[in-house]
């Protein structure tokens, strides 16, 4: 059935297009929940993408590539952490600088690897389940990272709202002075959050360079880091809504391509703006309760912490 195939292609494409956003946004969500604004997502993604790619070329294993990408994202986020948490630099300026640095650094270290072909990560078909019509290809025939991204959202939700660690992290993001007075190390907790954000951004980059388009090309993230940042805010810092937002954005992007390819008479300019408009409208509508936004928004977001001040 032709219609069925198209619907399936759209849904599978949605998951593929949404996954890098899920990783980057869920990482940034934790960072922001701890009260830190890191605008360096795009830069960390690019450095993750290039280092994961190079590691895969050198070792032949995309799994090692993924680990290296996470490591590279963490390393770069540590630079941000040291500057903003220890030297108390301005978070917005430091984050922007991190993106600019990441764009340049990734271009520089990737120079010799542009155009190197690799075998990317292959889908893992879950036995039996993947042979179910429709549901099989939709849910049980993806690469490891897609399964991981959904698992990560569940894990973060559980951690934030069901674990002691999550409670402490939220407390730090809410009022670092109060958390400090209770005896929690604000700087340490924020450092860990920033590192988690860096690792996830690196993973998002690896998804692009190892799975989505298995190649390295300068600036290949093409702004996805910024979209992830916006998603966190529009999803009002709630993990499940980040997932919805990412799939919505990916889904409408894919849908608009299908609409065009089918030859429907729509303006390509309108179609190009649709993913942005639809994602914002939907997320604003489901999160329009101002009280709840205030409850979810970390009150100390972006404010530097001076112990003892």
């Amino acid at each position: 059935m032709d219609g069925m195939d198209t619907a399936l292609a759209i849904l599978v494409g949605t998951v593929r297009a949404g996954t890098p956003l899920v990783f980057a946004a869920i990482g940034e969500l934790i960072v922001e929940k701890s009260g830190v604004l890191n605008l360096g997502v795009e830069g960390m993604m690019l450095v993750g993408a290039v280092s994961g790619f190079i590691a895969t070329v050198l070792t032949g294993s995309p799994y090692i590539g993924i680990l290296v990408a996470i490591g590279a994202g963490v390393l770069l986020s540590l630079v941000f952490g040291c500057l903003t948490q220890l030297l108390l630099t301005n978070q917005v300026a430091t984050g922007l600088a991190l993106t600019i640095f990441g764009v340049g650094l990734s271009a520089f270290i990737g120079l010799d690897y542009v155009g190197t072909p690799i075998t990317g990560l292959r889908p893992i078909a879950i036995p039996v389940l993947s042979s179910i019509p429709i549901i099989g290809p939709l849910l049980f025939n993806h690469d490891l990272l897609i399964y991981m991204s959904v698992g990560m959202v569940a894990l973060v939700t559980w951690f934030l709202y069901r674990s002691r660690g999550g409670l402490i992290l939220r407390a730090v993001g809410e009022s670092h002075d109060a958390a400090h007075a209770l005896g929690y190390s604000v700087v340490k907790i924020r450092f860990l959050s920033i590192m988690f954000g860096g690792g996830m951004a690196g993973l998002a980059g690896a998804y692009l360079s190892l799975v989505y388009t298995p190649q390295w090309a300068e600036n290949m993230t093409a702004g996805r880091g910024w979209i992830a940042l916006a998603l966190v805010v529009f999803a009002t810092w709630r993990p499940a809504r980040v997932l919805i937002g990412a799939y919505l954005f990916g889904g409408i992007t894919i849908l608009s391509l299908h609409v065009q390819a089918h030859g429907f008479d729509v303006s390509s300019h309108l179609v190009a703006t649709l993913p942005y408009i639809a994602t914002i409208v939907v997320l604003v509508l489901i999160s329009r309760d101002a009280t709840k936004i205030r409850l979810n928004a970390p009150a100390s977001l972006g404010r530097p912490f001076h112990p003892g001040a």
């Binding site: 692009l208 989505y212 090309a217 093409a222 992007t253 391509l257 390509s268 190009a272």
Partner: peptide
Amino acid sequence: WISAWYDPGKERE
């Protein structure tokens, strides 16, 4: 039409 000169992900999709 993808409304971008360069976006490997979108070109691929």
